[in-house]
């Protein structure tokens, strides 16, 4: 019975919560094949994370806490994954389609000449062991079904928030095996000089709730100070900081933005949702002052509930929203923040 491998992604020694979704997807495959659901945990704190993976349903864990694996680097991670795949011939390797998951699985699939499907939102195991996966194509405008045969190991990355996570069960344990790294530090060309973390912000792709701002954020009634330079940029930045952010804070939400807001310099590119930014799929997406160009829709159309707040009642965003509020976001958002504080008891 060949195993199903699930890479548990960690950051600074802690598992990303979406990793339990990958274990959930892995369980779907392991159920059919009868193989062991095996967590792969590399890097700092690997033993503790492997224990957590056991609580989330992994029956086996392969861990490597070698110093060369502290902090993700493709070369040592891919070399180790490739070796483990060659040794164990697993039925499948799964990970979440994060920046790291995408490159790690693709690299190892290339090393082993295996098939790969990335960023899938559903999986269906066929009678012959092949898998049909559904993924989005043409910037989210259509879906495609892609099949992967059962001849070799199937490499699959899953879209965050698309699969049900394996819930934790206290006391459940994985049988842990330590494995040795493949590369030594002098064989690794890539050196990390430093990491500039975005402190205190909620990751857009993991977020259950997102509050996004668009061009309309520049209609701030406040006057820009005389030395502000571009008044529209000052007004928009002030709006993101003092109107959007407080609403996001009370909701525990991430802050997103439209391309128009990013290109105008209102907020950094890392917040852009849409075709040349991030694709998100929260339970609740609140679009504030965003008209809803097709390129923006590409990044957020799979949100469960969309709320549109815009002063233009003809804005295309209302066509895809569940709830629409026509009005001035500079009046509605503070009222909404106050109401939520009251109702959510914060």
């Amino acid at each position: 019975m060949s195993a199903v491998f699930v890479w548990i992604e960690t950051f600074e020694g802690a598992a990303l919560p979406t990793s339990w979704e990958a274990l959930g997807a892995g369980a779907l495959l392991a159920e059919k094949s009868g193989g062991a659901l095996t967590a792969l945990v590399f890097g700092e704190n690997a033993d503790a994370v492997a224990k957590e993976a056991g609580e989330h349903g992994a029956t086996q864990a392969l861990v490597c806490a070698d110093a060369t694996l502290k902090g993700f680097r493709l070369e040592p991670y891919a070399a180790l994954l490739t070796k483990l795949v060659q040794e164990h011939q697993p039925r499948a390797v799964l990970a979440v389609a994060t920046t790291r998951g995408r490159e790690l699985l693709a690299a190892s699939a290339a090393d082993t000449d295996s098939g790969m499907i990335s960023d899938v939102s559903s999986l269906d195991v066929q009678g012959d062991g092949s898998v049909v996966a559904t993924r989005s194509a043409y910037a989210g405008k259509v879906m495609s079904d892609v099949s992967i045969d059962a001849a070799g190991t199937q490499f699959i990355t899953i879209r965050g928030r698309a699969f049900r996570p394996n819930e934790a069960k206290a006391g459940a344990q994985a049988a842990v095996t330590s494995v040795a790294p493949v590369l030594s530090e002098d064989q690794i060309a890539t050196k990390v000089e430093r990491f500039e973390a975005e402190v205190g912000t909620v990751n857009l792709t993991d977020a259950a709730i997102i509050v996004s701002g668009g061009r309309g954020i520049a209609n701030n009634p406040k006057d820009a100070p005389g030395d502000a330079g571009d008044a529209a940029v000052w007004k928009a930045k002030d709006g993101f900081a003092n109107v959007i952010q407080p609403l996001a804070d009370v909701l525990g939400a991430a802050v997103g933005a439209s391309r128009a807001a990013v290109d105008a310099g209102y907020i950094p590119y890392a917040h852009q949702v849409g075709q040349t930014g991030k694709v998100v799929s929260p339970d609740l997406y609140i679009a504030c002052g965003i008209s809803g160009a097709i390129q923006h829709q590409a990044g957020m159309r799979t949100s469960k509930v969309i709320v549109a707040i815009n002063k233009d009642k003809e804005a295309p965003i209302f066509k895809m929203a569940r709830f629409g509020l026509v009005g001035d976001l500079y009046q509605i958002l503070p009222a909404l923040t106050a109401e939520l504080k009251k109702r959510l008891g914060k």
Partner: peptide, 9 residues
């Protein structure tokens, strides 16, 4: 190893 089965709306 992979094959595009079909596009769907």
């Amino acid at each position: 190893h992979t094959k595009l089965v079909a596009f769907k709306n």
